[in-house]
């Protein structure tokens, strides 16, 4: 399964695709919600690695609008709870991720994104 936590850390890795290669855009996605144990420390540790704007956009693309558009200065428990849900409880099961720059399509089938490149796309 792919969740927004990994989507937010994933860029296109096609040869020469180095600008505007993040975030990958979701296309025709189906989702499944699965509860995960809330660990505020984990979410707090992760926060500096995340691109807030990309996360808000990705959440919107899968139908979740709970996050504020700007990263709040104070990450209280309420924000951490919302982040926890967005990052770890929404599973993308079908669809695709598309690179805005080179248009490479990474299909997602049965919860697993296919990241394989063809010979001419390998760096």
């Amino acid at each position: 399964m792919v969740r927004l936590i990994t989507h937010n850390l994933l860029a296109c890795h096609v040869k020469g695709c180095t600008t505007n290669n993040f975030p990958l855009q979701f296309q025709d996605v189906q989702i499944e919600l699965q509860e995960a144990e809330f660990n505020p420390d984990f979410v707090r540790n992760l926060l500096p690695r995340l691109e807030w704007g990309a996360l808000v956009d990705a959440a919107k693309q899968v139908g979740d609008t709970s996050l504020p558009p700007e990263q709040p200065e104070m990450t209280d428990d309420d924000v951490l709870q919302k982040l926890h849900h967005v990052l770890l409880e929404i599973h993308i099961t079908e669809g695709a991720m598309v690179c805005s720059n080179c248009k490479h399509i990474y299909p997602i089938s049965n919860g697993i994104p296919n990241m394989l490149l063809s010979e001419h796309e390998i760096g």
Binding site: T6, L9, A11, A36, N110, I112, P113, M115, I122
Partner: peptide
């Protein structure tokens, strides 16, 4: 990976050839 899905592991799974390189952003993993 199919077997991993059936066993309901918690991690996110990717079909990837590591010899082609990884696409994760800088500093993604601990």
């Amino acid at each position: 990976l199919e077997v991993a899905l059936e066993r309901e592991v918690e991690g996110d799974l990717f079909l990837q050839d590591i010899g082609q390189g990884l696409g994760f952003r800088p500093g993604s993993f601990d």
